[in-house]
Structure formats: structure tokens, C-alpha cells
């Protein structure tokens, strides 16, 4: 189980007298069970990426903590990293190498034995339908192929928790479906999947539970039914816009 407890993250802007503190994430709490896909929804600047960076040990929370089972992110960073797979939306892999080489390389960085790397590669290449292009240079691949490669690389060590920041951003409908289907299959095999997105259609289809994040605060949290029942709106998108549009109201 992954548990986020009162997570806050502040950034300092400027120096001296003009120094200001920006609260990017404020007192965030949620938890995810194995087999669950959790969608963190919010507009740009809501704090989604900051939250996911805290979850993946890239940045330290100002206060609060994150747990995977009994391990917490502040004290067990190394264990945390071995149990998570993290992918950012804006990543561009070095075009000179092939997906196969990059998989081997990231496998070794994750201290995996050669045999296990081969097993994982075979599984991921098949699941993501990558076998036709694993030996081509990444430069020669389409955007969709590159994204599939990035997904595969981030999961080479078969992590229990998958954290993807905007995984379908900029992808065509076919690749987008391939990636979301893959995430569903991961969840079905007992993994915890946490994604951030502002695509409500994908979120509704993909996620079991949601957190709507606005200005660093978690405004809503629960399943689709729970969120809709607790509001006057009849779909997730309307609930979402009620929080972010000027003059929008929510119950």
C-alpha cells in the first residue's frame, strides 16, 4: 500500500527582502492499494508534478511523509527507489541508442542480473508491442514508439508502484490507448499505478480513484461515484471545472 500523509512542499522564490514562499503542495493526504489506478487531476501549476516528484524521491517534502508499506520516503529513499517506476511527460531519451540498449543499461543501474533483464525485456517488449523497433536508434522512432520505450525503461525493474506524470501527453489516440491498456494490465497484476493528467476522458476510463488538486490543495478525493454523488454535477469534467473556472461553484 502507498500512503501519503499530510504532504506539503514549499519553494522559496527570490532572495533577501523580495524572498517569497510558494506552497506548491499543501497538506496532501491519500492512499492507494495494490491493483488500484489513482488519478491526480488538476490544471497546470496545481502541484501534480511536485507531488509525484516527492513520491519518487526526487525532491524532499517540506513536511509530511510518504509510505510504501512500512518504508517512508524520508528515511528509506534507496528502498523507495527500488520499488517505484517513475516517468515524466517531457522526457526525450538520447536518440543515439536503441531501446534494447537503454533497457539493458537501466536494468544494470537497477542492479538487475543479466538473466532477469532479458526476462523483463521480453515481457515488456511484448506487452507494449515493441519487438519491431527495439534495435532501431531512438532518433528513428515515432513519438509513440519513443513513449513506449520510455514506459518500458521506467518499468524494467518491475516496480510495485508506477508513477507516471502525464503519460499520454502529446500521444496520438492509438499510442495513448496502448499506454493506458498497458497501465490497466499492470494494475490488474497487482501494481499500484499513480498518474497525473488533465485529460478527464482518459482519467474517467482509466482510474479507480481520483484526487482533484487545485493550488496545491486536494479539493476532492474518492471514486468517480463518490465524487459525483457529493456534487451537483453529473460528470467528472464538470466537477473539475467547478473548481478551476472563475466563478465556478461546487457543493
Amino acid at each position: 500500500m502507498l500512503r501519503v500523509e499530510r504532504l506539503s512542499k514549499e519553494f522559496q522564490n527570490g532572495r533577501g527582502r523580495s524572498k517569497t514562499t510558494v506552497k506548491a503542495v499543501d497538506n496532501l493526504c491519500f492512499q492507494c492499494q495494490p491493483g488500484e489506478i489513482y488519478g491526480l487531476l488538476g490544471p497546470n501549476g496545481a502541484g501534480k508534478t511536485t507531488t509525484l516528484r516527492c513520491l519518487s524521491t526526487l525532491i524532499k517534502p517540506t513536511s509530511g511523509n510518504v509510505f510504501i508499506d512500512q518504508f517512508n520516503v524520508l528515511e528509506h529513499g534507496q528502498i523507495f527507489r527500488s520499488r517505484i517506476g517513475f516517468l515524466t511527460s517531457d522526457m526525450k531519451l538520447d536518440g543515439y541508442f536503441t531501446p534494447d540498449y537503454m533497457m539493458n543499461w537501466f536494468g544494470r543501474l537497477n542492479k538487475m542480473e543479466a538473466g532477469r533483464i532479458e526476462q523483463q525485456k521480453e515481457k515488456l517488449f511484448n506487452d507494449l508491442q515493441m519487438t519491431d523497433f527495439v534495435n532501431k536508434k531512438i532518433d528513428q522512432l515515432s513519438t509513440g514508439m519513443k513513449q513506449k520505450t520510455a514506459v518500458a525503461i521506467s518499468l524494467i525493474h518491475d516496480p510495485e508502484v508506477i508513477i507516471f506524470d502525464e503519460p499520454t501527453n502529446g500521444l496520438d489516440i492509438v499510442t495513448s490507448k496502448a499506454v493506458t491498456d498497458f497501465l490497466v494490465s499492470r494494475a490488474e497484476s497487482g501494481k499500484i499505478v499513480i498518474i497525473s493528467t488533465h485529460n478527464m476522458t482518459i482519467a474517467e476510463k482509466l482510474c479507480h480513484r481520483f484526487g482533484i488538486l487545485v493550488d496545491g490543495e486536494l479539493k476532492e478525493e474518492g471514486t468517480l461515484n463518490e465524487i459525483i454523488e457529493g456534487s451537483t454535477r453529473d460528470n467528472l469534467e464538470d466537477v473539475f471545472f467547478s473548481y478551476i473556472l472563475p466563478g465556478g461553484s461546487h457543493v
Binding site: 516528484r53 519518487s56 524521491t57 526526487l58 534507496q78 527507489r81 527500488s82 517505484i84 517513475f86 516517468l87 515524466t88 517531457d90 522526457m91 526525450k92 531519451l93 538520447d94 537501466f106 543501474l109 537497477n110 542492479k111 520510455a150 525503461i153 521506467s154
Partner: peptide, 13 residues
């Protein structure tokens, strides 16, 4: 710039 540093940092090294 390419965003790959984050991926490198969340590994075991």
C-alpha cells in the same frame, strides 16, 4: 533539458 536526469536519479545508483 531532455528530462532524463530525473529518470537516472530514481534508480539504484
Amino acid at each position: 533539458e531532455r528530462g532524463t536526469l530525473a529518470m537516472l536519479l530514481v534508480n539504484q545508483v
